[in-house]
């Protein structure tokens, strides 16, 4: 038995707290997924039933679109905002504080406010478009397959791009000023600086933020559930909502657990690959 590395020792309290919290839920879910309501072992029956459902592949595909669309836009817009908020201009402190507001607004309230703003008849968005004649007919944002998922993604981007912005902004604070000075001596313009100095320096922050965003998007419920509940005709049904419906609407805890196990395994693989690839790249230790 070798002595514990000081690095692990530092991490130990966090690992212990989390183990305490998730150990039982993981065992419980795993057990539920292979049993029936009477507690009998049923092998893979729950898994089979979940896989047979017409909605499962639909939800899987929607989840990919949802996660991909949300995360890419959040990272790009958030990083751009961070660079903007790092520039010097009058009122910067106020703008920075305003930028946290979408995140502070309670999720359900934000979602419902957007739902009403997107409403075909009541919505302020259609009103602003139709009143000056930009469009002739009100747009059915949340009632058509083509617009409903983009609308959901837009709301999610609105909610979370400030998170990226503030996190990256904090990272920007740590960039030594002499790096910029050196670049400027070499005759670099603003965009050269962004590309060759700023972005490489905050790369670790963006990498971590992206990982968190992927996980949050993968496990998202509030916005979609509050607005469309996965509809219309399942066009916004993502897997976590399918699990939620199975467990708490259909009272099929065992099938919900089976789907959770599959979902958990898939996300775990994504995360492990992501971390493995990155840690290989940026190991910089003492």
């Amino acid at each position: 038995m070798t002595r514990i590395s000081p690095g692990l020792l530092f991490a130990l309290p966090a690992l212990i707290v989390l183990t305490m919290l998730v150990a039982y839920p993981i065992m419980y879910t795993a057990l539920l997924s292979v049993t029936d309501q009477q507690g009998n072992l049923v092998g893979l029956q729950n898994f089979q039933r979940v896989m047979q459902a017409r909605t499962t592949p639909v939800a899987f595909y929607n989840t990919l679109v949802w996660v991909g669309g949300s995360v890419v836009l959040q990272v790009v817009l958030g990083t751009a905002t961070a660079i903007l908020l790092n520039e010097k201009f009058a009122g910067r402190a106020i703008v920075r504080s305003i930028a946290v507001i979408p995140w502070v607004i309670p999720g359900i309230v934000g979602a419902l406010t957007w739902a009403w703003m997107f409403h075909t008849e009541f919505g302020i968005i259609n009103y602003m478009l139709t009143a000056p004649g930009i469009v002739d007919e009100p747009v059915g944002w949340l009632v058509s397959r083509n617009t409903v998922m983009p609308a959901m993604i837009a709301i999610n981007v609105w909610k979370l791009f400030p998170f990226v912005a503030i996190m990256v902004l904090a990272g920007l604070q740590a960039i030594p000023k002499d790096l910029y000075e050196a670049a400027r001596v070499d005759g670099a313009g603003f965009w050269d600086e962004v590309w060759h100095v700023t972005l490489p320096q905050v790369r670790p922050v963006i990498v971590a933020v992206t990982l968190l965003l992927v996980i949050w998007a993968l496990n998202h419920i509030t916005t979609i559930f509050a607005i469309t509940r996965g509809g219309p005709a399942n066009s916004t049904l993502i897997t976590p909502i399918q699990i939620f419906r199975l467990a708490f609407e259909s009272v099929q805890f065992h099938q919900a657990a089976a789907l959770s196990v599959m979902f958990f395994a898939a996300t775990m693989v994504i995360v492990a690959v992501y971390i493995k690839v990155l840690s290989a790249k940026e190991e910089k230790s003492l």
Partner: peptide, 30 residues
Amino acid sequence: AAYGFARFRFRGKAYYQSFILIGQLLPTAA
């Protein structure tokens, strides 16, 4: 924990780092 992960190299670090995320990977409903 962050200091440990940022400044030390140790066996299975990537796994411990993933483990930190585990609670968020389990669907809320489960």
